[in-house]
Design a protein around this nucleic acid. Structure first.
Ligand SMILES: [Mg+2]
Length: 312
DNA sequence: GCGACAG
DNA sequence: ATCTTGTCGC
């Protein structure tokens, strides 16, 4: 799914002399809650040559952050008048008749469906190898790396890299649609699949229990663990104080992950993706603790992705 | 009504 | 995620 293209297509539907708000644009995309994230995407990742981004404003007719002469001139040339950072009679020029397939609505439905397929039981008996995957970015290019280690000896077994054009912006709770395509490609390059794959992000620690690690676990039919550096949702029982402590994270009363103090400093948020249980997920990450905050396979994948990005 | 929001 | 080296502090 190319969401950049979908955003550009919708903005291009706004006729000259009319406007739309980030909220309406998000609605047309199929999820009103991402309005602010879409504002960021338009500001940082879409050029005015691709679509008339100057026609997207805040709610209530406010022109928003960008009051540059260039933008004000364009709007005036299109017949609009501005009083105190606001469009005069804005209600009459708001365009609402978008033609859209509401992609985010469809993707959300897919997430809900996928969540039901997650299995929180071990699909393996012995942990022999553990891999880690991560992605680094340069504009809209994603540079990924996967690194596999021997679980017992902590010996590096193999590293694979891959590059791709990214078609989906970062939107909280939709990370999987940005990163999974490259992760899939990376895993397919491995000579041998690891027993478990660690992923930089969440598993069922997600508003719909369908984070990147869960998506990858279900689709690739591989045991996966989500390891996130900040909390997406849920409530932490308590802030862990000693190394190894792992208070539960709950959502609607259910445990969805753990805040593991893996080193001194901030904790890391662990959740099963699929094909693995809570206890094993926690223990595997604990046993792969390294000098840094990230477990060994993820640290190595992270570094390799970053270096790969610099070299290109 | 306000604040939060994986990478 | 990204811009970026050494350096101050727990
Ligand atoms: Mg990452």
């Amino acid at each position: 799914m190319d969401l950049y293209k979908a955003i550009i297509d919708i903005i291009n539907q706004i006729p000259r002399g009319m406007l739309t708000s980030y909220t309406q644009l998000a609605e047309a995309l199929g999820d009103q809650t991402v309005a602010r994230a879409i504002r960021r995407v338009i500001r940082d990742e879409i050029s005015w040559g691709e679509a008339p981004c100057h026609r997207v404003i805040e709610d209530q007719g406010f022109i928003g952050e960008d009051e540059s002469e260039k933008r004000v001139r364009l709007l005036k040339n299109e017949g609009l008048r501005i009083d105190n950072s606001r469009i005069r009679d804005f209600e009459r020029v708001m365009f609402r008749e978008f033609n859209s397939t509401k992609p985010l609505q469809r993707l959300r439905a897919k997430q809900k469906q996928l969540a039901g397929k997650a299995k929180l039981v071990n699909s393996f008996t012995e942990v022999r190898t553990v891999g880690g995957v991560d992605v680094a970015y340069k504009n809209k290019e994603g540079y990924g790396a996967v690194a596999t280690f021997d679980y017992k000896t902590r010996e590096l077994i193999e590293v694979k890299k891959a590059k791709t054009q990214v078609k989906f912006p970062y939107l909280p709770t939709y990370l999987t649609f940005r990163e999974f395509p490259l992760i899939k490609k990376l895993v397919s390059k491995l000579k041998e699949l690891p027993t478990i794959l660690l992923i930089d992000g969440n598993g069922i620690l997600h508003p719909y229990r369908a984070g990147l690690a869960t998506h990858a676990g279900v689709v690739l039919n591989l045991p996966t663990i989500g390891v996130a550096k900040s909390l997406l949702c849920g409530k932490i029982e308590k802030i862990p104080s000693w190394i190894g402590e792992h208070p539960a994270i709950r959502m609607a009363g259910n445990v969805i992950g753990y805040a593991l103090k893996i080193s001194k400093g901030k904790p890391v948020f662990i959740s099963p993706g699929s094909n693995i249980c809570f206890d094993t997920a926690l223990n595997v990450v604990k046993n792969l603790a390294a000098e840094s905050r990230l477990p060994l396979p993820l640290m190595t994948a992270h570094q390799n992705a970053g270096n790969f990005r610099r070299q290109n």
